[in-house]
């Protein structure tokens, strides 16, 4: 009696688990990304799944996780099994290598364009009609102008903002560091609220009606304009800005353990394809592929863009001189 029942149970268990076994043959990937890429990757994941199915017959499901870039990197350091990360700045990915040893040191050399399939930059968003007549970075230092930007200590986007303004000041003051520091200090004196993230600042500017100008990611500015209508806000393109390269990489230790290296690698490489680039451009990221860039020429005005490696000696150095405790940003607020 007992053995019979248990045999039956076994049969049931095996029958029930068969569909599970076939499901397990499907592949799933986890892409850990930052806040503003949500819409981009929803579209891209569907496109990639189709491409992969046609190429190999396998079904791939990509799960997405979004949040502040630094917080996401800490999640991966603390054990979140991301197959790939697509973050806001290379500093955050560097730390995944340094703190958790999940990727090699030279990860950024593994894919073209510093492992950044798409780029963006920093622009200024003003209210309709530009009532304060803001044209360029130096207008932000004028008294009576209220500037909205997040806190560079907590927001990756805010660090790009700070560096863009700093680079402008360097260029106009013969690379005089003291004058550039003074320049950004004047801007931050005009900042009434330092939100902890880029989306928070957009909300403060758009919903709360605070500030005359929002320093913003170009893609966020386009998105705000699209969501809220071009009759409310205008994008002002400064004469000089910074080339923001949000990089991507596979997490070696994770893909080797989960045996997903081939598909994870293909997932990132497909971002550089015609279709991947098209989706990035549609979501307001600047494409790196020449042919797609040409097609979207009108959408993205040409700005003279400096590179962080050229002007600030890379992220590690920029972080240390400008955003570490007691560095130039902290000095703005010291009496």
């Amino acid at each position: 009696m007992y053995t019979k029942f248990s045999f039956k149970k076994w049969v049931v268990a095996v029958v029930l688990s068969t569909p599970l076994l076939t499901l397990a043959a499907d592949i799933s990937l986890l892409n850990v990304s930052y806040d503003p890429t949500r819409e981009l990757y929803v579209e891209y994941n569907a496109a990639f799944a189709k491409h992969w199915k046609a190429k190999t017959g396998d079904t791939v499901t990509v799960k997405q996780s979004h949040g502040g870039s630094g917080k996401q990197a800490r999640g991966v350091i603390d054990g979140l099994s991301a197959d790939v990360v697509t973050l806001a700045l290379s500093y955050d990915i560097d730390e995944i290598g340094a703190k958790a040893k999940l990727i090699p040191k030279d990860w950024q050399k593994r894919l073209p364009h510093n492992s950044s399939p798409y780029t963006s930059t920093i622009v200024l968003l003003v209210r309709k009609g530009n009532p304060k007549g803001i044209k360029d970075w130096n207008d932000l230092t004028k008294p009576g102008i209220s500037v909205i930007t997040p806190n560079p200590k907590t927001s990756g986007g805010a660090r790009w903002n700070y560096l863009a303004a700093y680079a402008y000041a360097l260029k106009h003051n013969n690379n005089d560091d003291a004058k550039a520091r003074d320049f950004v200090k004047k801007i931050y004196k005009n900042v009434p609220v330092l939100d902890s993230g880029a989306r928070g600042s957009t909300t403060t500017f758009v919903e709360r009606g605070i500030g005359d100008v929002l320093i913003s990611w170009e893609n966020e500015a386009f998105l705000a304009q699209k969501e809220l209508g071009p009759d409310k806000f205008e994008i002002v393109v400064p004469t000089l800005s910074i080339l923001a390269e949000p990089p991507v990489t596979v997490i070696d230790k994770v893909v080797d353990k989960r045996k997903t290296r081939a598909v994870a690698q293909a997932y990132l490489e497909y971002l550089y394809s015609e279709e991947g680039q098209e989706i990035a451009a549609k979501n307001y990221y600047r494409p790196t592929l020449e042919s797609v860039a040409k097609r979207y020429e009108k959408q993205f005005p040409s700005i003279s863009l400096i590179k962080i490696d050229d002007v600030f000696g890379g992220w590690q150095k920029a972080q240390k001189t400008h955003f570490a405790d007691g560095a130039t940003f902290d000095q703005i607020y010291q009496k």
Binding site: G68, R74, K153, T154, Y333
Partner: peptide, 18 residues
């Protein structure tokens, strides 16, 4: 705002962010 309206839990988050 640093020195004015930053609460201690934010300082902790700030340090984690770095």
């Amino acid at each position: 705002m640093p020195m004015v309206s930053e609460i201690t839990p934010l300082i902790i988050i700030t340090k984690l962010e770095q």
